[in-house]
Structure formats: structure tokens, C-alpha cells
Nucleic acid binder design. Sequence first.
DNA 1: CTGAGGTCGTTTGCCGTCTAACGATTACCG
DNA 2: CGGTAATCGTTAGACGGCAAACGACCTCAG
Lengths: 153, 153
Amino acid sequence: MPEFLDLHGRTGKALRALADEAMRRHGLHVGQNVLLAALWERDGSTPGEVAAALHVTTPTVVKMATRMTAAGLLTRVRDDRDNRLVRLWLTDAGRALQGPVESERRRMEDAVTADLTDAEREHLMSALTKIHRSATELLGASGPADHDDPAAG
Amino acid sequence: MPEFLDLHGRTGKALRALADEAMRRHGLHVGQNVLLAALWERDGSTPGEVAAALHVTTPTVVKMATRMTAAGLLTRVRDDRDNRLVRLWLTDAGRALQGPVESERRRMEDAVTADLTDAEREHLMSALTKIHRSATELLGASGPADHDDPAAG
DNA sequence: CTGAGGTCGTTTGCCGTCTAACGATTACCG
DNA sequence: CGGTAATCGTTAGACGGCAAACGACCTCAG
């Protein structure tokens, strides 16, 4: 029963449930808001680009895009110049959610970290960053190459 | 793009991938080791008991138990006294994994927190605990009652 | 211009998670 | 003793995540 892994996992579960609840208020599933965020940042991205930005695989984006297209949040358009590519474009409905969803997400972050002092928050981010780096490096050993910051160190 | 939520999420993904890789070395899927851990702690538990111990729902445990039974890690036995109940019993194969898997998990925790000083680790656990509590409480408001520490505060 | 190889998105299939609905069994009250 | 209510495990269906296989398209050498 390792302490940190367990605590991190349970915290993640709680945060996920909280986000799910919050996003449901806007008619979204929990994963959809991050896909939307990628398009708010760069509308007309391809599934592969979105996947890279979100640190998930392409099939995951494809599935989500299918549901979100059915939900009227975005549209799929094949690229004229390169017919292999598909571009995901926000609909008005998808664009309209940006404000509400972003503030909802900020509110959640604030609420969840409300009990921490500024110093605690900094230490937390710092420690989590170190752990993230360690985990990613351990993964890199005979694992998948992430191409996020391999040589740029 | 809230900082903490994003970082926590990415860290969780990396940790999960790492655990997945580690457990695969023992022929397990990532979720199976925690179910086994519950039975190592209390062999012959019911799906409901395991679910409560793991902070997941009963159907989740049922599905995993089905696969793990097929994999020869445990067996399902109906309780004689109360025929609604099902008891999950470890097989020799399931028991044999306890040592290796537990040390694997400890090794992973150590490796991942190796860059932190003792003080940093304590602060991290403390901050994460606060966040977990905040998230759980926010969830409690018109959400599912978890019965984990409602009055015992 | 043609064929081989690389790049995409998609499909398929699995794992873990949840909620909702269902069926069987037990417990409790009259 | 009987019937309703509570308790369990299971099933069904959905979402988010991954890896592997596939098919369509582009590129580039020849």
C-alpha cells in the first residue's frame, strides 16, 4: 500500500468525478471539454494534432470527435490539399461553450486548492512536476518515445 | 488551462502508464493488482466489500473478477449461509504474485519520488490530502454519499 | 509515370470506470 | 406464514483510454 501512489490515485478519482459533475452542468462529458479546449486554441486542427496537444492517442480523439459531431459541437471536413487529413471545426454551439466552461474549470481549480497557501501551492506544483518528469523518464526506458522534451533539456 | 488540474492529470497518466508497464511484467493488467491486493488483505471478500475497499463500484469489481477468474487468479464461490453473496478466493497463482507485485509497487513509488527530499514528500502528501478532502466535500454537495468520513472529521 | 513506402484517419477489440436496470435471495413486519 | 422491502451480484450500455490492424492517400525514387 504505497502512500503516494494511492493518495494520488484517489485524488485523481475525486477530481475526475468533480469535473464530470461540473461539465455535465454544461451538457458535456468530462473528456469533451479538453477536446473543445484544443479547438478553442486552434480551430480546424486534425485529429492527430489534437491528440498530440492532449497527450492522448489518435483513436481516442476520433471516438470523441464522432460523438461530439453527433452532439452538434463540431464538424468533420476533409482537407482539400491533402485528402488524408480531416479537420475538426467548431460549430456555434461548440464555440459558445468556451466562456462558461473555462470559468467553470477555473472555479474548480480554485475551489479545490482553496485550502492551500501560496507557498503550499508552489511546493505542490514543484513536487508534482518532479514526479511527472521521473515517471516520464522511467517510461522512456524501452517505452514509447513521447517526443515532448527528449533532447531539449 | 488551469495549472494544477492539468499537471495532476498528466502526472496521473504517466504514473498509470508506468504501473501498466510494471504490472505487465508480471502478466497482470494495471487494475488487477489492486483487486489482488484487496484479497491479499482479506481473502474471501465479496465483490461489494472489495469495491468498497478499492473505492470503485461493484460492477467494476464484477467485470474484473470475471476476467481474473478466466485468467486463473481467483475463483468465485457462492456463500452457503447467504446465497446472495459471492466470495472471491485467491488461487495459488494469485497468492504467488503477492511478493513480486508488492515489491514492484514499492519500487515504483520509490523511483517516482526519488527526486524529492523528505520534507518535499511530506508537503506533497499534506497538500494532496487537503485537495482530496476539498474535492470529496465539493462532491458531497448534492452528489453521491461516500460514507468514508462524513461525520468523522 | 509507376510502384514502394510513409502518413493519416478509422475500425476493432480490450481494460477500467460509471450509472441504471434486472433477478435472485434474505429480512422484516403484520 | 406470507408478502413487501432491502440487499446482492450480474448484465447492459456508455465514456475515455490504449494498441494493433486496416485502408485511403501522398511522396519520392527510379
